[in-house]
Design a protein around this nucleic acid. Sequence first.
RNA 1: GGCGCUAUCGUCUAGGGGUUAGGACGGAAGAUUCUCAAUCUUCAAACCCGGGUUCGAUUCCCGGUAGCGCUACCA
Length: 490
Amino acid sequence: MPLYSKVMLRVRFAPSPTGFLHVGSARTFIFNWLYARHNGGTMVLRLDDTDVERNTDASVNSIFGGLRWLNLGWDEEYKQSERLALHRQIADAIFQKDLAYRDFTPAHTGDTEKSGANQTWLFNPGMRELSRAESDRRAAAGESFALRFRVPRGRNEQVRFTDAVYGEQVKLADDIEDFALLRSDGMPTYHLASCADDIDLRISHIIRGQDHLSNTYKHALIFEGAAAKIPQFAHLPLLVAPDGSKLSKRRHGPVVSVTTYRDAGFLPEAFINFLCLLGWSPKDNREKMTRHELIEAFSLEGINRANAVVNFKEPAATPDETFDPKALWLNAEHIRALPVSELSAQLLPVVRATGFQVTSEKMDAITPLIRERIKLLRDVLTAADFFFVEKLPPYDPAELIPQKGDAAMALKVLKRAKEVLAQTEFSHDPLDHALRAAAQEMGLKAGQMFQPIRVAVCGRKNAPPLFETLQVLGRDTTLARIDQAIEKLN
RNA sequence: GGCGCUAUCGUCUAGGGGUUAGGACGGAAGAUUCUCAAUCUUCAAACCCGGGUUCGAUUCCCGGUAGCGCUACCA
């Protein structure tokens, strides 16, 4: 491919700020970004904010917050509302060519008359045929109107475009309604604004959700009407809920919001990885991929056509069920791929935000003990809690009793452990030797010796390896907790 | 209703006229370990239905069914 054509490759992500950043939108952004980076193109971020009624600042913040978290960046940024003159100019050009007409019918609320052959609304009666003179007169008189595209009728004309994912698309113009370009308040509609900006910003590839596939015929008409080159389209299969329905905040709650993933402790790298695997495949069985590998592997040919299910549990019984198990697994993979120092630095703010005082040195020591035991960053709070608290939360003393043992054995073990630990160096090998020797002395299996100690210091049976844990905890805390355990048994 | 898109294990997917239909997550069993993880091994699990075309269709074509999308002066 010649260099210049790569330089000219321009894609855009054009969210409308009417809600929080949706995971589906995030994926669209990512695919655009990947395509741009793979081809050395330009990534444009454009806020499609022509719906003044529904725009909110909170939404703008959510979108930018989410995108910044993704940490992918973009090259150019625009706001549609600042480009209204351009939209009207293009609308006017289309109108001057008589490819659009003024519709003075008042904006309706309920059902409309069906003017089409198949009881489908195609246009409002009488407006298409209005003479230019009459139309001008009524407009001059101050009558408000919407500007509608004059879709070719009754000539069996076909509108066509090629989609990089869905192939050749053809539709009869007679099945397309006379869609609005300008509203009666003079604001451009989405279709007009979007196409006008795509033309002006010289967008070469439009990669967006499949929900726009049917709209693309209208867009093709606009591009053609504006004498512009039609960009390459690539529609993405939609992300849907386990029951096949569209992901919606109202029905599915926070699962659909990018911030939910961020707040739970997904690594952006893993989140991106997960989203890429929904509706796209590198076709070589790779699953865990870095962003660089994704850039390298990404192509429009790898996108498939069927909607992808985000496999969360509808009523989540556990917090983890809010997420697709594969997302969790990928996050765990990416966590384990992080150097300890980096993971530790990521974990630190999570721990501190909960109110625990931890030094970064201590966190560095804890991190290797838990990094194979957490799927989400927030799991540090449950996996390593006993390192942070002064006093262990209450636990059942029965937990202290080892396999095939009784309370008496637990007591015996703990008392002996106290003696041993009082005079053993607190590092792995000495602890290992001393404790195993003590077990043997008492005629116990290593596990029978270790479990009461583990429960005494961790407050539960499932925890990181014992010697490393003791080392991080230190002698004072260890002995104090063993004392507390002995009290519990008495 | 009209128009369009889609259909491989529970989920994400690979594949493709002749294959033991491959991988991953999740599930089950086992190995390993001081528990839990991690790791390793093994197992169960799929071509929506019906017609064609063909020597042979899961793959190509048609129909059905189902799901989804669009059908606004929302985007």
